[in-house]
Amino acid sequence: MISALLHYNFLQNALMGALLASLACGIIGPVIVEKRLVMMSGGIAHTAFGGIGLGYYLQVEPMYTALGFSLFSALSIAQIQRRSSVMPDVLIGMFWPLGMALGILFISFTPGYPPSMSTYLFGDILTVSSSDLWVMAILDAVLIFITFSFFHLLQAYLFDEEFSNTLGLPMVLAEALTYAMIALTVVVLIRVVGIILILALLCVPPALARLFRNDLPAIMGLSVILGAVLCLAGLALSYRFNLASGAAIVILSVTVYSIVQLVLRLCKVY
């Protein structure tokens, strides 16, 4: 694979894509896990499908419309949740399929042969283009910038919203930033693992990391590393055995998590 890496541009792109994806999921994954926003993120990911359909319909790059669509949905959902009394679960249960339904509708309106959606649904890291890489890199930079510049605010929001409110801290801003970052992360991950498989890459690295570390920056750092290892190993498996890349990464991640849990439990017993 190493020599292939030097020869094939698509493999170099895939490698870069995997690294950029693990950066995003390593930073946001712990946020999502600690704030119990895993299902919420799944919902936001699926609204991105509406954006991809819109991209095909309008004949523009689906990554851009997906970005706009998921950002808009994420911020709207945060607003609706804040202002109405609808239960979060129920809200997720509605906008999750709504995003998918809109995507299907837009695609059916698109003239000509219906495009294959499986790259976006399940990801295909071996077809990541250099323009995709640029989008991913810029979004990663935005994610890192927000996390660094507002770290104390985000930490206060994640840990204890009520106390933060008594201090008059801008919780609406913190929430909007968090939801917007989830939307950006979804777009970074779409090309690598696809909409349907995103959740695994958001959960597994932070879930593993928090078994070993218990401060947030360290969990983020470790998640980035674990995400990179899992993505690259998944990529290698996918290349070697000709498997779907998203599926390889997800199956590997969940397997590794289960094994680590099992080993830790055995260590405790003996």
């Binding site: 660094f148 104390h152 605010l153 206060a156 840990f159 933060s164 201090l167 008059g168 801290l169």
Partner: peptide
């Protein structure tokens, strides 16, 4: 430390 955040600018705090 959270207790010290009140009334501060939180951008690069």
């Amino acid at each position: 430390s959270m207790g010290r955040l009140a009334g501060k600018s939180l951008f690069f705090h």
